[in-house]
Structure formats: C-alpha cells, structure tokens
Design a protein around this nucleic acid. Structure first.
Length: 306
DNA sequence: AAATGCGCCAACCGCGTTTCT
DNA sequence: AAGAAACGCGGTTGGCGCATT
C-alpha cells in the first residue's frame, strides 16, 4: 500500500524559494523555533508543504551553515566517513556541523566520487577505497556500530543540555550564511544581504509584526535593485533578529564549535559534550600515517576514543 | 553569435521510521 | 495494539550557468 505524497494538494507551490518566502519562514522560526513543520504553512500562509519548509530551513536557512568550497580536512573526513558508513549522509553530516547532508551528498556525487575513481585508477587499490578484504568488512562493521553509538550519545548529550529554559534561546540564531544561493534567474544570489535588503524595504512599509499574525503579504521589493550598503543592511537585519556574528564561533570543523553555536543546530547536529569524542575521532581521521590500521585493533581497545 | 553538451546543486519524491491518537 | 500522521533520510531530477564547438 503506497503512501500518498504529502504535497499532492492543489495550490501548493513548488520550485525555488523566493526571498519573501525565506523571510516569512525565518521570521516564523525566529518566533516559534523549528519543529512542528505541519503547522508552518498554515501559520505563515506559505503556499509550501511542510516538508518543503523543513528542507529549506535545514538545508539553507538554518544558522551556521557553511557553503562553498569544502576544505581539505572536510574532504578527508567525508571520504573516511563514507568509507565507514556508506551513503548515510545524515550520519556523516553530523560530524561536519557546518555542512548539510544534502551538501555532502552533492559534493560526494559531483567531486569526490570522481576524485577517488581517479585515485584508484592511479594507485590500484586505493588508500581510501579499503579494498574488499574480509578484515576490512569486520573492521567496518565494528566502527560503524561504534560511530552510530557515538552519534546517538552525542544527540543525547545535546538534548540533555537543552533544558526547558535553554530552549527559549533557540531562537537566538546566528546570521545566515553569506553563500546561501538562490536561483539566479530571479537575481536572488546571496541570502544574508538579499534578505537584509528585502527586510529593509519591507520594514519601511510594514511594521515588524511577525508573531502569529498571518499578514505576510508579499512586498514587491526587488533585492537586486538596491545594492548600496548591503553589508550594513545585512548587519542591521542580523541584529534586528538578534543574531550574533557567526564568523568567530565556527571554525573549519566541529571540535571548536562553541556550545552556543551548537545550540542553534540542535535539530540534527549533535555536539556540545560530544566535542571531545569528535576531536578524538577526527584525530584518527586525519592521522594519515595510521589510515585504516585501526582494523587491527579491537573495539575494546579503542573504547577511549568515544 | 548560436547551438549543444556538461557539471553543479537546489529541490522534489518516495519510502522507512518514529510519534501520536 | 493498531492505524494515521509526521518526520527524516537517501536517491533522483530539473534547470541554470559555463564551456566548448
């Protein structure tokens, strides 16, 4: 018995999101926090299905997302983790807090696959490829289980850390990432600045009232027509929404993430107390001299890693 | 300058799992 | 306990931009 698609209703909008829609969604989440996606389209008046709203938030609007080029370390991590976990992008993404599973998946499919193929062609049995030895299979199984446990524990730590009073801080979000891209045909290229511009025009004409009001009429501001002082406007936007600067709180990969930064990512990015676990894992991941020699070590011997 | 091919990535779709009633 | 609804994940697709012919 097949399941009905969630978005089969007529009048549900599909395709690229507009700045107006983003603003509405962000404003709503700013007020209510992420979650209860079912209610989002009704409460906001967005002609999008709940799934689409969630996706847009988790992949693009959620604070702390880094876009653009992957660093060498990130690349390595993805390769290693993919070898261990397979195409479990969400699990892999939990080790790269600034990247979404979609991003990692895309990067894997478009860049890393080719890269590895090339590498394997050059080196016969790839150092990344693990070959197909039975010892690897056993090793992979063990590490896979351990990694899953790790992810689970990290999530638990995170949820423990999110006491009820802390949960109200969840809306204290970080600024949008400058690299969030939008469909170019509409001239909507960069979220922070464009949303800021959009907001500026909006606020000029509309009192800022986002709570439960469904007065989300679409202001016809063309973000690309106002290009002066965009950075300033972006900052104004961020400060208006209570965002802090992201730059200082996020580094290349997860270990140095501040708990505050992690808070805003509570949805799917386990961190906080897991940091030490992660840094140990990453220490292993980046320790090129020991690549995959851990297969010879039992889980018990490695329990300190986690 | 126009046509075509290719790569990239945002968004969609369908299914499995979890939560709710 | 069972069915329905919601959520989350991974695979796939569509459309845009750039490069090549």
């Amino acid at each position: 018995m097949g399941r009905q698609p969630c978005c089969d209703k007529v009048g549900v909008k599909k395709g690229p999101w507009t700045p107006e829609e983003d603003l509405i969604l962000v404003s709503y989440i700013q007020q209510h926090g992420p979650g209860n996606w079912r209610a989002v389209p009704t409460k906001t008046g967005l002609l999008r299905c709940s799934k689409s709203c969630r996706l847009r938030w988790t992949n693009y609007l959620r604070p702390g997302i880094k876009r653009g080029n992957f660093t060498e370390n990130e690349e390595k991590m993805i390769i290693h983790l993919q070898a261990l976990l397979g195409n479990r992008w969400a699990a892999i993404a939990s080790y790269l807090p600034e990247r979404t599973d979609n991003d990692i998946k895309n990067y894997w499919n478009t860049h890393l696959k080719k890269k590895l193929k090339k590498l394997q062609g050059n080196e016969g049995s790839s150092r990344y490829g693990f070959s197909s030895s039975s010892s690897y299979q056993i090793c992979r199984g063990q590490w896979e289980r351990k990694l899953q446990t790790d992810i689970h524990m990290a999530k638990k730590d995170l949820s423990d850390a999110l006491s009820p009073e802390k949960s109200s801080d969840l809306v204290e979000m970080k600024p949008f990432n400058d690299h969030t891209s939008y469909p170019k045909p509409s001239g909507y290229a960069s979220s922070t600045e464009n949303i800021a511009k959009l907001l500026k025009g909006w606020m000029r004409n509309n009192p800022w009232k986002m709570a439960d009001s469904t007065d989300y009429s679409e202001e016809g501001t063309d973000p690309m027509k106002e290009d002066k002082n965009s950075k300033e406007m972006a900052e104004a936007f961020q400060s208006h929404l209570g965002f802090e600067s992201l730059d200082s709180s996020l580094s290349d990969i997860s270990p140095s993430m501040s708990p505050e930064a992690s808070l805003s990512q509570y949805e799917s990015k386990p961190h906080l107390n897991a940091q030490s676990q992660l840094s140990l894992l990453e220490k292993w991941l980046f320790d090129e001299g020991k690549d995959y020699q851990l297969c010879d070590i039992t889980l018990d011997q490695n329990v300190h890693f986690f």
